[in-house]
């Protein structure tokens, strides 16, 4: 079994690409499963601490950068703390399995983000909290087919077409472009049931660290609206760091 996921991080601040799966790489004659497994070798980690920035362009054409630090453990647990801008400093987001909490130091409240709040945009970005929370393993919920091979952004890519196996998947189909040499997704398109393109994600910059390729800059765009898109950048990342158990609990949010 393999899991592949593109998790947009919390509150648009930490967005961590997690591809989490048992590591069983197979180098040649790649089937879609094998391709995704190779991807996982790059993307999946036991734990990581990262510092990220998200650049949002508002309607006045002004950009804001939101800087945050994230602690991620496995696929479904992450804590994000805002560092800047000043007014958001200390705000935290906690993803615990399928639940999302936010802690506001100003209100000293832990509030669960649920219901229609989940559909709202994260910090004015092109991502909703729901997009961010969407963390079912790709191969668990999608059937993958190798559609074609294509050159994109100067790199040779496998194009995988993903079709949902289950009814309850927000995006019933996706297309993922995977660098055939580095085994890293470079582009993803998410489609509506009708086949209409809803969201586009592009990896615009890569970094090689701790013996793996990892995205450095990701661009998100809601394709139905005419906004500017959101740029998400991983400034620093460290894999395999020990994260204390108590950090990823609700109780820790207020500390």
């Amino acid at each position: 079994m393999m899991e592949n996921k593109l998790i947009a991080g919390l509150a648009g601040v930490a967005l961590v690409l997690l591809f989490n799966a048992p590591q069983s790489a197979c180098a040649n004659a790649p089937t879609p499963e094998q391709i995704l497994q190779r991807v996982d070798a790059n993307m999946v980690f036991e734990s990581a601490i990262s510092k990220t920035s998200m650049t949002i362009t508002n309607r006045r054409g002004r950009t804001t950068s939101i800087i945050s630090k994230s602690w991620s453990k496995g696929e479904k647990n992450a804590l994000v703390e805002y560092l800047a801008p000043a007014r958001n400093k200390g705000t935290k987001m906690l993803m615990l399995d399928d639940e999302l909490y936010t802690y506001s130091p100003a209100a000293d409240r832990i509030i669960q983000i649920s219901g229609h709040l989940l559909r709202q945009s994260v910090s004015g970005s092109d991502l909703s909290y729901e997009d961010m929370m969407e963390n079912d393993a790709l191969l668990e919920v999608y059937d993958a087919v190798l559609d074609s091979e294509e050159v994109w952004d100067g790199r040779n890519c496998f194009v995988l077409a993903l079709k949902a196996k289950k009814m309850e998947i927000a995006y019933p189909s996706r297309k993922v472009w995977i660098d055939s040499e580095r085994y890293l997704p470079l582009k993803e398109e998410r489609y509506a049931k009708s086949g209409k393109l809803l969201k586009k994600i592009e990896i615009r910059d890569l970094v090689r660290t701790q013996n793996r390729w990892y995205p450095r800059e990701i661009f998100f765009k809601d394709m139905l609206s005419n906004g500017q898109g959101t740029i998400y950048r991983i400034e620093e990342i460290q894999f395999g760091v020990d994260i204390p158990e108590h950090l990823l609990t609700k109780a820790a949010l207020r500390r």
Binding site: I66, R87, T102, S104, A106, I111
Partner: peptide, 11 residues
């Protein structure tokens, strides 16, 4: 939400 889209929670 603030005008920059960030969530704002105040008592």
């Amino acid at each position: 939400n603030t005008i920059n889209g960030a969530m704002s929670a105040v008592n």
